[in-house]
Design a protein around this nucleic acid. Structure first.
Lengths: 148, 148
DNA sequence: GTGTATGCAAAGCCTTTGCAGCATG
DNA sequence: CATGCTGCAAAGGCTTTGCATACAC
């Protein structure tokens, strides 16, 4: 297997990684850019993107391409699943998934050799549930059906 | 529940829907634009986007926001899962998923009220498997780990 | 010193939107 | 004949990239 080319441990890369590891909020690249700027005012958004991509490729962090337009990043590289709030777009880790929720592993499906799967839950977060007035049964259009 | 406003059955909408229903290839909006143009040279990309969005909201088709940059559309509105090829980005339906692969339903997770889930598989399609020379154990960077 | 990484800014890609005219119901 | 829909084109949002310079090793 080919050895990748030498990567340098720049201050920018350290800052991005450190700040991401502090958070459990699954920030976007723009979020991390703002946070990193507090410590390093001249860091550029492009650098943040480049480093997040690189760290994800190295398996040090995870890039979550979850529903919604922006990618989010997770400082925890361990396998775990996520829930996204259909109202506020908040993303949380799922810690209480019933054991064996998914039967793993599946080796073949529809002629494909299966490498992995992506699973995410959609729901309403505690905050947003509190916020909805009792008695109101209005449903935002985008909440209509997430089960398919 | 509020009644939506009257929607018209335009020729553009018919063409987009008909062409999508003919396909099992999960085309992108741009794909459908090209296909629709064969029948209706003046149709615009904006119109294709607007109609796909509307048809998906009506539950007539599905919008798949699967890994990768572009949204894909599925003329089959029934619930089913998809496999994406990590090499060629092809997307297929999964017809042979073991029964009870996912335990449903889950009502609550991490304080969220769960509305649904998104599940997709990543693998190597039959074509791409055939294409890889036997004996080669090179692995494309993006295939590294899709299991987390 | 060599070559990777950065900052800056421009470009790229997919998608959405404003608007005036058209065509459906 | 009212108004939802269209084509066109421009704008928007997120991400990537070209380039000259800086800095890690």
């Amino acid at each position: 297997m080919a050895t990748g080319k030498a990567q340098r441990n720049t201050r920018q890369r350290q800052v991005v990684l450190e700040e991401l590891k502090k958070l459990t909020s699954h920030p976007t690249a723009a979020d991390l850019y703002e946070i990193a700027r507090a410590r390093m005012p001249k860091i550029s958004l492009g650098t943040v993107y480049r480093n997040l991509e690189l760290l994800a490729e190295n398996g040090v962090i995870q890039k979550l391409e979850i529903g919604g337009s922006e990618a989010r990043f997770d400082g925890n590289p361990e396998r775990h699943y996520h829930v996204r709030c259909a109202r506020c777009e908040r993303v949380d880790d799922v810690h209480d998934l019933p054991g064996g929720f998914v039967k793993r592993p599946v080796k073949h499906l529809s002629g494909y050799e299966i490498l992995g799967l992506r699973l995410e839950f959609i729901g309403i977060c505690p905050e947003c549930r509190k916020r909805s007035e009792p008695g109101s049964d209005e449903v935002a259009p985008h909440e209509r059906d997430h089960t398919r």
